[in-house]
Write a protein that binds this DNA or RNA. Structure first.
Lengths: 198, 198
DNA sequence: CGTAGACCTGAATCGGGTCTCAGGTTTGAG
DNA sequence: CTCAAACCTGAGACCCGATTCAGGTCTACG
């Protein structure tokens, strides 16, 4: 792959977006190159000008979604003052992202077999963000002391299943308020935080 | 499919076990009928005497694993006195089951696309068990009041990701003690329980 | 020991997948 | 306007999968 002109970059982007749509809709295996290129409105052969293989475009998608969801979460979290509030804002952003990009879940689940490295990378990058914030809050005495890594994975687990249950399965665009409120209470307790507000 | 003789039942069982092994190892799509029948030591055609399709044997496996893991969890939980202790014992059983049957995770993850109904059934059956126990404990004032369903899904999420991180990824046969201890603390807090012991 | 019914077999059918390649089209720098 | 580089195309080459079926083997019971 050489230097891309504006046209080339546009075509590549069209393919990437089509791949996200098709993978999310049909899953990795039923998502054929033919279907992806059709959805992108280009010929079959064009795919291989920009990607080495079906797996490579998949890996790139995982990385892309990972970056985007983390960005959305940290950006939202920045608006909070206490750690608990920041975590809750992060959850809110995660749920919104899930609603807008169900591809995140659907692609990640597939990654278990399609690309275990990508799966691992995704989760590890997500925890990294958590761990530093949690450790600081522990040192500051804001939340309960303990191993921040275990706590981080626990929080991710909560987000993952609650998001699956009330966003993905409901096909809903937002988390029902009573569920989110209950989640806030559970979160504050799990963190061992005094309260949401300082 | 008619009445099975002892021979037939044996062959069917061999196929089911081979399918569990192969699905867990290769994933649904790379697990061909040829590979499953080879692993079971029977001819290709034999498969279709006992199962209608590849998907049907997959669904049966999900159901089977679900029954077994829930049985292991409730049995272990029965040994506890407080709700928190019971939940923790349930987690322990879940991790042991995961270590012995990695197929559980690997097959469930695949189910997202292979058989969404089965995926949903699996998670819903797991929560059912949680919810009744949690509601009772809430009424008894043993744990914090709230919507038991949100709490149940949160707990499942914690188990799922912590199990993935420290059992599956480590290829370990048991949860490291420091991690389990930390998990116990998080759990007690999340439940809003007084303590592990009465 | 004969035989009905259960059990087993693997080649063949049919469908569909990834990736390559020889040749055509578009673009933009000079 | 010219033309080399970049871009695009879709028909195969090649491979592999689920499922069926016509015909063979086993076994329990009368």
């Amino acid at each position: 792959m050489k230097q891309l002109t504006a046209r080339g970059a546009r075509t590549r982007q069209k393919l990437l977006e089509a791949a996200e749509r098709i993978f999310a809709e049909l899953g990795y295996h039923d998502a054929s190159i033919v279907k992806i290129t059709e959805a992108a409105g280009v010929g079959q052969g064009t795919f291989y000008l920009y990607f080495e293989s079906k797996k490579q475009v998949f890996d790139e998608l995982v990385l892309d979604l990972n970056t985007r969801v983390r960005h959305a979460m940290t950006e939202a979290a920045d608006g909070g003052t206490t750690r608990a509030e920041r975590e809750l804002l992060g959850f809110g952003a995660f749920f919104r992202f899930t609603a807008e990009h169900p591809a995140l879940y659907r692609i990640i689940r597939q990654a278990e077999f399609v690309s275990p490295e990508s799966l691992q990378l995704h989760y590890e990058r997500l925890t990294e963000g958590y761990v530093t914030g949690l450790r600081q809050a522990m040192d500051a005495g804001e939340i309960a002391e303990g191993d921040p890594e275990v706590l981080a994975w626990s929080l991710m687990g909560i987000g993952e299943l609650v998001g699956m249950r009330w966003i993905l399965w409901n096909g809903s665009t937002e988390m029902p308020e009573p569920v989110f409120d209950e989640l806030a209470r559970i979160l504050v307790r799990a963190l061992g935080a005094k309260d949401l507000d300082p």
